[in-house]
Design a protein around this nucleic acid. Structure first.
Lengths: 152, 152
DNA sequence: TATTGTTATACTCTATAACTATA
DNA sequence: TATAGTTATAGAGTATAACAATA
C-alpha cells in the first residue's frame, strides 16, 4: 500500500488543460461571432447555410440542435431577412432553407471576425506549429466519450 | 475585389477544432467524475478541498462559481458526510471548509477515474507528444478572451 | 461601511412530448 | 404508419439582488 497518490487539485492534468483551453477558445469564438451583431447560434446557422440550401432536418443535424430549437433560430433569421424558408415541391412536408443576399453579407462579416479571432488565438504559432497542433488534436480519443453524468 | 472568400461551413478552422476537442474532453472528464457517484461539481469541489481547508470565498474563487451556488454544493457534500463547515474563530463571518475521511476516500476514486480517462484520451500520445501538446496549449492566447456576446 | 455566507428570484438553455400536415 | 416541422411545457443551470451576522 504505497503509491496511488491523491492529487487534490485539478492542476497538472493535461485533460483539464485541454478542456480549459478549448472552453476559452470557444468563448473567444463566441465573442467574435457576437460582435458581428448576431447571436452565435445564428452566425453558426448562417455558416452552414453558406454551403447551400438544406432542409431543416439536415440543418438541425449539422448544428446538433433539436429541430424544435431550430424553429426559433430560423424565425429570427427570417424576420431579419438573413434566411428564407420555402416548401419543397417534391415533398411538401419539408422546408428548404436558403441564405439571402443580406445573409451572405452578414456571413462575410462573421467569416472575417473568425479569421481575426484565430489570428489572435494562434499568434504565437508558426505554420509548422499550427499543422502539428491540428494533427495532435486529431489524435485525442474523442470516441471514448460515451459516458454521461449520474446523480449525486 | 478578388479574394476574401466566405467559408460557409465551420470546417477546417483550427479554432473550432480546438473548441470541439476541448468540449469532448470536458465531456469525457465529466463522465469520469460522474461514474464515481458524484456530480461533477461535487467532485471538483472535493479536488480543491484535497489541498487543505479553505474559506467558502476562496473556494468559490477556485471553482469559479458564485458563492451563492457554492452554498448548495457544500450543503450536499456535508449531508453526504464528505466535507464539513466550521466557523473561523479568528473571523466569525467565515466558514472554514474541510474534507472528511469519507471525502478523501471519494476523492481517491475520483482521482483514479481521472487517471483512467486521461489514459484513454491520450492513448495515442508518446511522452514527448504529451509534452509537446501541453506546450502548444500554453501558447494559445487565451488572454484575448474578453469579448462577450451581444444580442441579435 | 464592507465582507461572508445565505436566501430568493428571474432568466437562459435544453430536453421532451404532443400536435399538424403531409407522405 | 412514419416523417418534417411546430408548439408548449418542464427542468437544469446560472446570474443577480437582497438579507443577516460579523467585522
Amino acid at each position: 500500500m504505497a503509491a496511488e497518490r491523491v492529487d487534490g487539485a485539478p492542476t497538472d492534468r493535461l485533460g483539464f488543460l485541454l478542456a480549459w483551453r478549448g472552453e476559452a477558445t470557444s468563448a473567444r469564438i463566441r465573442g467574435a461571432l457576437g460582435v458581428t451583431g448576431l447571436h452565435p447560434r445564428h452566425a453558426m446557422t448562417l455558416m452552414h447555410l453558406g454551403t447551400g440550401p438544406v432542409s431543416q432536418r439536415a440543418l438541425s443535424d449539422m448544428l446538433e440542435v433539436d429541430p424544435s430549437q431550430l424553429v426559433a433560430i430560423l424565425n429570427e433569421l427570417e424576420s431579419d431577412g438573413l434566411a428564407e424558408r420555402r416548401r419543397d415541391p417534391a415533398d411538401r412536408r419539408r422546408h428548404i432553407v436558403e441564405i439571402t443576399e443580406a445573409g451572405t453579407a452578414a456571413l462575410r462579416k462573421v467569416d472575417s471576425a473568425l479569421n481575426e479571432a484565430e489570428r489572435e488565438l494562434f499568434a504565437a504559432f508558426s505554420e509548422r506549429d499550427l499543422a502539428s497542433l491540428r494533427t495532435m488534436l486529431d489524435w485525442v480519443d474523442v470516441a471514448s466519450v460515451q459516458h454521461e453524468c449520474s446523480e449525486d
